[in-house]
Simulated assay, not measured.
Amino acid sequence: MSYVDSLLSATSGSSASSTTSSSTSGLGMDAFLQLLVTQLQYQDPLDPMDDKEFVAELAQFSSLEQLTEINSGIEGLSTLTQEQQMIGAVNFIGKTIEANGTAVNVEDGAATSVTFTLPEDAATCLVNVLDSSGNIVRTVDLGATTAGQVEFEWDGKDYDGNAVDDGQYQVAVTATNADGEVMTVTSTMTGTVEGIQQVSGSYYLDIGGGRYVAFTDITNVVNETTTTEENS
């Protein structure tokens, strides 16, 4: 393997493992071409480079250039995707949305509601409210519950009837059907988007009370204007 071959192997491996590195952090095409010219200038006249080896190194340069262009394209696509997410997130500010989630926020003793969906009639239905440490602070027995969407409104009190501290809590629903089988229950929460936050390149919507939802978790955008008109 020639000196240029070894450089190409090392640099190609580095390019494949990291598509976000700056082009100035490694040798570019111009530098590699300069290395090739230098190699030709200082080759042994009694043992010149074989034509096939020379063509092979040129092909390696071409492959490296294509790989660099692909990496640049991926970086550009990633940037464009983040910009589109940012624009989409901003458009949600001020709108009321429904999203998958189990978070409940308590403020001044009042708790936000959570809506869960039962795939079939439930013979038993228990709703556990957990604090930030995962401790159950309250269990509400809803008894037999009809299939469909069920809105759960917690009174913000613990087992002893005392108001809990303000903050975020989680609800966990356990429901069984007539045969005693545990059902899969999905839960959604509602809130008005107050802002956005970026985490690891992705944007999340702030719906108040420390509750954040991803775009993929949004299930519905509530049209308050339409709802008001229908009710009137």
Rank of each mutant, 00 (worst) to 15 (best):
S2W: 04
Y3H: 02
S6P: 00
L7M: 11
T11V: 12
S14I: 03
S15Q: 15
T19S: 07
S25P: 00
S25F: 04
Q34E: 05
Q34G: 15
L36A: 15
T38A: 08
Q41L: 09
Y42I: 01
Y42V: 01
Y42S: 11
Q43D: 07
P45Y: 00
D47P: 00
D47V: 00
D47L: 05
P48N: 10
P48Q: 02
K52Q: 15
V55H: 12
L58Q: 14
A59N: 11
S63V: 06
S63H: 04
S63A: 14
E65K: 10
E65Y: 12
Q66E: 05
Q66D: 07
E69R: 08
I70W: 01
S72Y: 02
S72D: 13
G73E: 02
E75N: 13
G76L: 08
Q82P: 15
E83W: 07
Q85F: 08
V90E: 15
N91G: 12
K95E: 02
T96A: 09
N100T: 04
G101I: 01
A103H: 11
V106N: 13
E107P: 00
G109E: 00
A111D: 10
T115E: 09
F116Q: 11
P119M: 12
C125V: 02
L126Y: 14
V129S: 09
L130V: 08
D131V: 01
N135S: 10
I136S: 10
T139H: 06
V140P: 13
D141S: 03
L142N: 13
L142A: 03
G143R: 13
T146F: 09
T146G: 04
G148K: 03
V150K: 01
F152M: 07
D155T: 03
D155Q: 02
D160R: 13
D160P: 11
G161R: 06
A163C: 07
V164L: 02
Q170H: 11
V171F: 06
A172C: 04
V173G: 09
T174F: 13
T174Q: 11
T176R: 10
N177I: 03
G180W: 02
G180Y: 05
M183N: 07
T184W: 02
M189R: 03
G191H: 05
V193N: 10
I196G: 09
Q197N: 14
G201P: 06
S202R: 13
S202F: 13
Y203Q: 02
Y203I: 03
I207G: 02
Y212P: 00
T216K: 06
I218H: 05
V221N: 09
V221C: 03
E224D: 15
T225W: 08
T226G: 10
T226P: 00
T227D: 15
T228V: 01
T228Q: 14
